[in-house]
Design a protein around this nucleic acid. Sequence first.
DNA 1: TCCATTCACTATCATCAACGTAGTGAGATC
DNA 2: GATCTCACTACGTTGATGATAGTGAATGGA
Lengths: 157, 157
Amino acid sequence: MRRTTGKSHCPINFGLEAFGDPWALLVVRDIVYFGKHTFKEFLASEEAVAPSVLAARLARLDADGILDRTPDPTDARRVVYNLTEAGLGLIPILLEIANWSASIDPETDAPPEWIAAVRRDETTMTDLIVRTVRNGGSIFVGADSVVASLTQPATTQ
Amino acid sequence: MRRTTGKSHCPINFGLEAFGDPWALLVVRDIVYFGKHTFKEFLASEEAVAPSVLAARLARLDADGILDRTPDPTDARRVVYNLTEAGLGLIPILLEIANWSASIDPETDAPPEWIAAVRRDETTMTDLIVRTVRNGGSIFVGADSVVASLTQPATTQ
DNA sequence: TCCATTCACTATCATCAACGTAGTGAGATC
DNA sequence: GATCTCACTACGTTGATGATAGTGAATGGA
């Protein structure tokens, strides 16, 4: 792709120039759905991105203010990537894409009950996801994940 | 872009493989927002796609069941492109992308009152847009456009 | 203090898609 | 029948991606 940036300020084009490539949203997905935060974890994703491509993508997402790149204070080798508030704002887009794909792709990996839960009350679910990810959690992975808090609401039981 | 398809059946990846390039969603945008339906009209878009790239994109969107390619019965030179039902399903994604970009890009071309109208009741607005586009209308262009039907509701007055 | 391991990248090169411009053939219009 | 319009195609250049190997700093254990 030539990725000519600045083609226009049409909001659709602006979005596509920010994340309209095969990898940018997959990084955001890895954070939001699976709680990944390091180069190594992104690299291990099912889609097998090349390290050079991943490095370039992380650098651009950081420069664009979507990701926040922070060296790990407890291990100087590690670098932790988190979503900024602008990056958290991409969550509704992720949910709509997952919605669409789940209804189109007969072999989708999307759990039907999860898609149904999102469709049931998208606003509430979006808020819950944003709050969870902002606090370092994810949708599917971890004790404080969104799906965990759905099956075992709040701190009861 | 290498556009390696079939990397995974993750719904986010599926969506990106279908429209995660700089041009596919711009074609959909041209139809939904501006009522464009022909090769020439897409080609004239602000972002200046190359004809070879546009031809390849239209062919793929047709093959993927997102666009419907029909020769114009009144003029055998012309070919009319319309969204299929799957293509209409992309409208919520477009709206979310526009939402995000409008809140990020200080120079966005998105009309603030339009963004506000969508945010006010996204479900109702989505339904209205889908119905309008399905009937050949668009959001901004034409007498039967969505914005026209908002300022002058239904057939009253 | 070594040494193996882990981490986040970088280097390299072939490949393939996008860019930009020019051109083509079928069909409409005058 | 000459011109114009339409949807493309051709083609050389550019640049990002794909795949694999390698680097240097930091950690952890012996």
